[in-house]
């Protein structure tokens, strides 16, 4: 047994590894926090930050999440909440992709935006804030606009892709690249009081059915804008889908979509 593991076990209580011990191990043994977390999880020790997950996720499941790589396309309204949710869930590698910088009109809803980072790249905020939330997570940032030209390079190696884009046209390209690479895509879209979520497994036709009648660049969001709460709701549903996809648990929204109406508070399942 390695000295590092002995160190971690000696400082764990009831299977839980306190953050202070994880940090101390990283310092004493000159290992990254991610490497310490990997060794802990592989040996049945749960970093104490995840203790409220323990009744619904086993330590091997938490380990599996830590070993996975999720790419998030768009770091705005949906993307900010999705990125924070994935980091808190304990996804080990997160890729954040967005070409834009924060502007004042983002402040009403975009979780990663603040007065102090106006004018700064959204992906830089993702690196900084995810690092503050969960330093064991590796964040890979690309300040680029997703497209057919760079899509394969940006997404290769991801286990799941999360769609947090703001354009129907680019979404269709994203779905095409995911199909090409054989990666499941968790799709979310919002506009005003409304949104929908669906999970597209490689080769499924659900995306064509969601947008097949119309591939205009924009939808209801153009006239209605977006408030603070709609992205939070839809992003949380997207993170739940990612969790289940990675752990092969429960029922995912493949071949169906969930349509969300927060004005009339109705959730409608659509068979695709």
């Amino acid at each position: 047994m390695s000295d590092l593991l002995v160190f971690l076990q000696a400082r764990s209580r009831n299977g839980l590894l306190p953050w202070a011990a994880q940090f101390a191990a990283s310092q004493c043994f000159r290992k990254g926090l991610a490497e310490v977390e990997e060794i802990a999880l592989a040996n049945g020790l749960l970093p104490a930050r995840y203790q409220r997950n323990r009744a619904m996720l086993s330590v091997p499941e938490q380990h599996r999440l830590f070993a996975r790589h999720v790419a998030v396309i768009g770091c705005g309204g949906l993307g900010g909440y999705v990125l924070a949710g994935l980091a808190r869930l304990g996804i080990g590698r997160i890729t954040a992709i967005d070409p834009d910088c924060f502007e004042e009109h983002n402040l009403n809803r975009q979780l990663l935006s603040s007065i102090k980072n106006l004018g700064q790249p959204k992906v830089a905020a993702a690196v900084e804030q995810l690092g503050a939330i969960n330093p064991a997570v590796t964040v890979i940032a690309y300040q680029e606009a997703f497209g057919m030209g760079n899509g394969e390079r940006l997404l290769r190696g991801a286990d799941v892709v999360v769609d947090c884009l703001d354009s129907v046209t680019v979404r269709l390209e994203l779905a095409e690249v995911c199909t090409l690479l054989g990666i499941p895509l968790v799709h979310g879209a919002i506009g005003g009081w409304y949104g929908h979520v669906s999970t597209v497994l490689p080769g499924a036709l659900s995306f064509d059915r969601l947008y097949g009648n119309n591939d205009n660049g924009k939808g209801v969001e153009v006239t209605m804008g977006n408030p603070s709460f709609t992205p939070a709701v839809v992003a949380a549903l997207e993170v739940a889908e990612v969790c289940k996809l990675l752990l092969d648990k429960g029922s995912i929204l493949d071949d169906r979509a969930l349509s969300i109406d927060l004005l009339d508070m109705e959730f409608t399942e659509i068979t695709l």
């Binding site: 919002i190 924009k218 939808g219 209801v220 969001e221």
Partner: peptide, 8 residues
Amino acid sequence: LFPLVGGG
């Protein structure tokens, strides 16, 4: 009939 929704 559902509207097109495309924001993020």
